[in-house]
Computed example of a mutant assay.
Amino acid sequence: MAKKKLTQAEMPVADHAFYGLVWAGTVLTERVDRALTKAHDLPVSWFEVMLWLASSPDPVPASVLGNSTMLSRSQVSRVVDALQGRGLVTRTPSPRDARSIEVALTPEGHQLFEEADATRRACLAPVFTDLLDDTDLAALSTVWHKLKANKDAQ
Rank of each mutant, 00 (worst) to 15 (best):
80 V>P: 10
112 L>M: 08
10 E>W: 05
116 A>L: 14
8 Q>S: 13
55 S>L: 02
55 S>V: 00
35 A>S: 07
113 F>N: 10
106 T>R: 10
107 P>R: 10
32 V>L: 02
72 S>C: 04
68 S>Y: 01
119 T>L: 13
75 Q>E: 10
141 S>A: 12
101 I>P: 01
141 S>G: 15
15 D>F: 09
40 H>W: 00
143 V>L: 15
136 D>W: 10
104 A>C: 06
124 L>Q: 05
115 E>Q: 14
46 W>A: 11
146 K>I: 14
7 T>E: 13
58 D>Q: 04
103 V>W: 08
47 F>A: 00
50 M>Q: 00
141 S>C: 09
104 A>G: 08
143 V>A: 10
62 A>C: 00
124 L>P: 04
95 P>N: 06
74 S>R: 09
30 E>D: 12
18 F>Q: 10
113 F>Y: 15
78 R>C: 09
133 D>C: 11
26 T>R: 10
119 T>D: 08
37 T>D: 01
131 L>P: 08
70 M>I: 02
44 V>S: 01
55 S>G: 00
97 D>E: 11
76 V>D: 01
31 R>A: 08
148 K>Q: 12
31 R>H: 05
60 V>H: 02
47 F>L: 04
137 L>C: 08
85 G>L: 05
103 V>L: 03
99 R>G: 07
121 R>S: 12
34 R>V: 10
29 T>K: 08
56 S>M: 00
74 S>M: 04
78 R>V: 07
66 G>I: 06
106 T>F: 12
98 A>V: 11
89 V>K: 07
29 T>G: 09
56 S>K: 00
24 A>F: 03
79 V>M: 09
56 S>Q: 00
18 F>G: 05
144 W>P: 07
152 D>V: 05
104 A>Y: 04
120 R>S: 13
89 V>N: 05
53 L>E: 02
77 S>Q: 07
135 T>C: 06
61 P>D: 03
141 S>K: 13
28 L>H: 04
94 S>G: 10
91 R>K: 14
72 S>P: 04
67 N>L: 12
